[in-house]
Simulated assay, not measured.
Amino acid sequence: MLSTLDHAKWLPITPDTDASLRLFCIPFAGGGVSMFRGWQEYLPHNVQLCPVALPGREKRMAEKSITNIAELTDILCTLLTPYTDKPFILFGHCFGGCLAFETARKLHSRGTSPAMLAVSGCRAPHIEPPLKIADLPSDSFTEALRRFKLTPETVLDIPDLLALFIPTLRADFKMDETYRYTESLPVFDFPVAVMFGDEDAIIPQECITPWQGYAHTPVTLTQFNGGHVFFADNPGPMLHAIFTALDGTVKH
């Protein structure tokens, strides 16, 4: 079991007992909780944003990254279980969406289901990843990060800083590129919402559409203008889409 200290590391914002719904957010490959900064202001007043901080990035940079997706999602299940006394949404972007899916699947199999699984820029889990960069040589790996805008330029332009990020980035991409869901569909009996950019050069729409088979209820697919991180400048429309899809399932 995770200690109280560990819970604080993984969940920098303590879930509020007064919130009627919690939104647990998992970042993309190599990303940290800073990607969710400012999101709370776009949420309904009684919904709490609960970003998940993974090891090997930001304030947890000194910690070794977890390289096994089964181990990582087992920890996430242990982490979240004490806070499933209230309805909750699991959200993840790209690789974070893969982690959110697998965590939701494990929780569901143990009798605890989220009110919704929401993902953005994330391939359907049984689909082969269209981009594979984890095993590229160092220069090619860095060039791919730059070309597909997977890492901030401020990191890519400082070699010593980039060197700190590379192990976590490679570990995350390796997990994402080797993970494949191989069991039967549909998986869930709760809503699934999928958001994507119409100019996404990393996860094209043909990798998104197959999400439609993952739930007994209709899966909501919402297209936005923009690239892979289409919500970077304004997460409001995407968050609105999530709660629009959820409307009628959980009162908020």
Rank of each mutant, 00 (worst) to 15 (best):
T103D: 07
L131G: 06
L131C: 11
R110E: 14
M116W: 01
L107C: 10
P114V: 10
K132F: 03
G111M: 07
S109F: 01
P130A: 12
G121T: 06
R110K: 14
A124N: 07
P137R: 07
D139L: 12
S113T: 13
R105W: 02
D139I: 07
I133W: 00
S109P: 00
L136H: 04
H108T: 13
P125Y: 05
A134G: 06
T112S: 09
L131V: 15
I127P: 00
P130T: 11
S138W: 02
L117K: 01
D135A: 15
G111L: 08
R105E: 09
R110G: 11
E102W: 03
S120F: 04
A134R: 05
E102L: 15
A134Y: 14
C122G: 06
P129H: 10
I133N: 01
K132E: 11
L117D: 01
I133P: 00
I127T: 13
A118G: 08
A118M: 06
P114E: 06
E102C: 08
H108Y: 14
I127V: 15
H126V: 05
L107A: 10
P137G: 10
P130N: 08
D139Y: 06
S120G: 08
A124C: 10
H108I: 04
P137F: 08
T112V: 14
L107P: 05
R110A: 13
L131M: 14
H126F: 10
R123K: 14
H108C: 12
A134W: 09
S113P: 00
R123W: 04
A124Q: 07
I127N: 07
L131P: 04
T112W: 00
E102F: 05
C122F: 02
P125G: 11
V119F: 06
L107H: 05
M116Q: 15
I133E: 00
P125L: 06
R123M: 08
T112R: 12
P129S: 11
I133Q: 02
